[in-house]
Amino acid sequence: MTKIIPAIIVSCFLLSCTAQKKASTKSMNGLKFIGEYLLPDKTDFKNTRVGGLSSIDYNPGEKLYYFISDDRSDFAPARYYTARIFLSAKGIDSLRFADVVFLRQMNGSVYPNKNGDSLHVPDPEGLRINHKTGELVWTNEGERIVKKGYAILQNPSINIMRKDGQLLDTFSLPPNMHVTATESGPRRNGTFEGLAFADGFETLYVSVEEPLYEDGPRAGVHDSTAWIRFIKYNVQTKKALAQYAYLLDPVVKEPIPKGSFEINGVPDILAVNDHQLLVTERSFSNGYLTCNVRVFLVDTSDGEDVSNVISLSASAPKKFLQKRLLLNMDKLGINIYNIEGATFGPQLPNGKQSLLFVADDNFSGKEKTQLLLFEVE
């Protein structure tokens, strides 16, 4: 269903390149909230349960949206969906799924679940279209389960595949991004999530959701010391060019009970132009159904390369990525669920640029697959 909410204007200066294949510079005045769309619970499509939608990207040539599911092959093999979303001046009229494509390993087989091969279970999180090659890039968060006498260690990965799901290649992994059995490297479920192409698809930015163990503690309530990293890649060589430090905001709400689970991290990034990113931070605390989401404009030219810095907490960078708040979703007046993806879409009927966010329902009956539509002014 579509729910129309009074417009919220967020004053900002935006540069939009979205649905175009090459970045262009435009001056914008703000973001205007149009409305939300909630996918019906337990939606099935082609014998798969639709859920866990952790990214959204738009292909203007096909007029299709691409969503990757973070299902770890439990409900169906790991997969992505394409869909058509029908927009109007009043909001999102409807969503119709067009296809589902299973992700395939190098040998052509679909990915297993934990009962089949626990060492190769994927955790898909981000997906972007490379409009220059026609291929797709997706992130796998890997796995880190360490128990007495037992460990499952799978490195995160950045994968290149054809649109039919066939894996073609992977990007190189920096040494500090390897999962270990000790408290070093990436945390479990806190690795690669966001993807953003820039420089005419010559550059790829990848965001790490939470701090590496070496970089200090996770974000907490009233805590502004949580450092994460953005990795800049050369798309042709598939090698990392630099890492940039980014400081997370504190967790928004005290968990219930106090001391229980809380998190703030970056689930997605979106290229605005060749030197600016739209960065989403999502905060969640135990005891609440909904999330607190903030969207920032970040200039990648402000940061210094911290690839060789072992610990960002021990040696805080002097030049880290500067961010400016563009949107606080708490002010929209609706429940905000587990927002995990963002994309610029087509022009709205009034000629303005659209911007859409998607929330992952975690295959839970209490959470929702939610789409939020904005007009870029």
Rank of each mutant, 00 (worst) to 15 (best):
F86A: 14
S54W: 00
I56Q: 06
K46D: 06
D57L: 07
D93F: 08
E62C: 03
D99T: 13
T43Y: 00
G108P: 00
M106Y: 15
G91I: 04
D99G: 08
G108E: 05
F102H: 09
G91P: 07
T82E: 04
L95H: 04
S94L: 05
K63T: 08
L39H: 03
S55I: 04
V110N: 06
S88C: 06
V50C: 02
S55M: 07
F45D: 03
V110E: 04
M106Q: 13
Q105P: 06
Y80A: 08
S88F: 07
Y80W: 04
K90D: 15
N107L: 10
S54P: 02
L95W: 02
N47D: 15
D57N: 14
P112I: 12
S73T: 01
G91K: 09
Y111G: 02
D70G: 13
P112W: 05
I56G: 12
P112V: 09
L38R: 09
P60R: 13
K46A: 14
P112G: 12
Y65S: 12
D99Y: 13
F86C: 11
S55G: 13
T82H: 01
V101T: 14
A78T: 03
N59E: 08
V101Y: 01
R79W: 10
D70N: 13
A98L: 06
D44E: 13
S69D: 03
K46M: 09
G51L: 08
P40Y: 01
L95I: 15
G91Y: 04
Y58H: 10
K42I: 07
T48D: 05
D57H: 11
A83E: 11
A83L: 06
S69T: 06
Q105H: 08
Q105S: 11
T48M: 03
D99C: 04
P40Q: 08
G108N: 11
N107Q: 11
A89P: 01
A76Y: 12
L103R: 00
P112F: 09
D57K: 07
L95G: 02
I92N: 12
L53P: 04
R72Y: 02
G61P: 02
L64M: 12
G52S: 06
Y80K: 02
D71P: 07
F102T: 14
L103C: 04
V110M: 10
L64T: 12
D71G: 05
G51F: 02
S69Y: 01
Y111S: 10
L95M: 08
G52Q: 02
G61R: 11
K63P: 00
K42A: 05
N107D: 15
S109V: 05
G61T: 14
G52W: 01
R72M: 08
K63M: 10
Y81S: 03
K46G: 00
I92K: 10
I68L: 05
Q105I: 05
I56R: 09
